[in-house]
Simulated assay, not measured.
Amino acid sequence: MSSMIFHCRRMESFDLLSIDLRGIRSEMKQIFLLIASYPDSILTFRGPLIVALQAGGLQVHVCAPGLPLGSEVRGKLEACGLTVHDLQLHRTGQNPFMDLLSFWSLWRLMRGVRPEIVMGYTIKPVIYGSLAAWFAGVPQRFALITGLGYAFQEGQARGGLRALVQRLYALALSRVEKVFFRTQMTSRYFGGAGCWHQVLTLVW
């Protein structure tokens, strides 16, 4: 496949998404669903993105495991005006049945919420979130890859896992409009592994 790579410096409000957001504005508030694997990371690392999306008039939903009703992190997220969904997802587990259950949970959530835009970050939210969004008919799908992750660390014992994750990434990223990378090194690795088709690289 042909590739398109754009290199940029850090942007304070994630303005790069505005190119796509402008094309779907309407009189009704659009829903942006952010999928995470670790709830504490949502405000810590995606806070500026969330603020920018809300300022742009989007209704932001977030989903991650470990966000039951009454939890402290959930309360902080809701205090920021976010709609919160507790997700059945095992971040580091390798049980195919549990992963299939995570995929089904994401698909069911998207069929109920009907977001116009979905973006996942870290391995499982990117892979299962992107595929679930495609199956659910979400119009715009994005992926944010912040690093290589456990499966890509050196070690022969993880060779089979790495090959499987590469194939899953290739399948999932072929179903998104753009892939956002945290570093150029990560984007080069994924490009060499044939895991993406169209890339917008963010460096910060």
Rank of each mutant, 00 (worst) to 15 (best):
F135C: 11
L131N: 11
P115T: 00
K76T: 00
V118G: 05
Y121M: 11
W104Y: 15
W134D: 05
T83K: 15
L87E: 02
R141H: 00
Y128E: 06
M119Y: 01
G129I: 10
G81W: 02
Q94E: 07
P125G: 07
C80E: 12
V113N: 02
I117H: 06
L67S: 08
G70M: 10
E72P: 07
A133C: 01
M98Q: 14
L106I: 13
L87V: 01
P125F: 05
T92R: 07
W104E: 13
V138L: 08
G129A: 11
A79Y: 06
H90W: 00
R91A: 04
V118Y: 15
A133M: 02
A132R: 01
E116V: 13
P139Y: 00
V138H: 09
H85V: 10
L87M: 06
L100Q: 08
P125C: 07
C80M: 11
T83L: 15
T83N: 08
P68R: 08
T83G: 04
P96E: 13
V84M: 05
R91S: 01
Q88E: 06
L109G: 12
P125Y: 14
L77A: 12
E116K: 09
L100R: 09
M119V: 08
S130F: 00
V113R: 02
V73H: 05
M119C: 10
S130C: 08
P125I: 11
A136M: 08
G75P: 00
L100K: 14
L82D: 07
L101E: 06
W107M: 14
W134N: 06
I117R: 01
L89T: 07
Q94D: 07
Y121A: 09
T83E: 14
A133I: 01
V118E: 12
P125W: 10
R111E: 01
G81F: 04
D99K: 13
L89K: 02
W107C: 15
V118N: 03
K124F: 03
M110L: 09
H90S: 13
L106D: 10
S71Q: 01
V126S: 08
E116Y: 08
F97R: 15
K76F: 00
S102Q: 04
Q88S: 12
V73I: 15
V138E: 06
A132D: 09
Y121F: 14
G81A: 09
G120E: 05
G75T: 04
F103W: 07
L100A: 14
R141A: 00
G81Y: 03
A136S: 14
R111G: 11
V84I: 07
H90L: 06
I123D: 00
L87A: 06
D86S: 13
V118W: 10
F103L: 12
Q88V: 11
F97Q: 14
L106E: 04
F103T: 02
P139Q: 05
L77R: 06
S130T: 10
M110F: 11
L67P: 09
Y121K: 06
L77P: 01
M119P: 01
E78H: 12
E116N: 13
P115D: 00
W134R: 13
K76H: 05
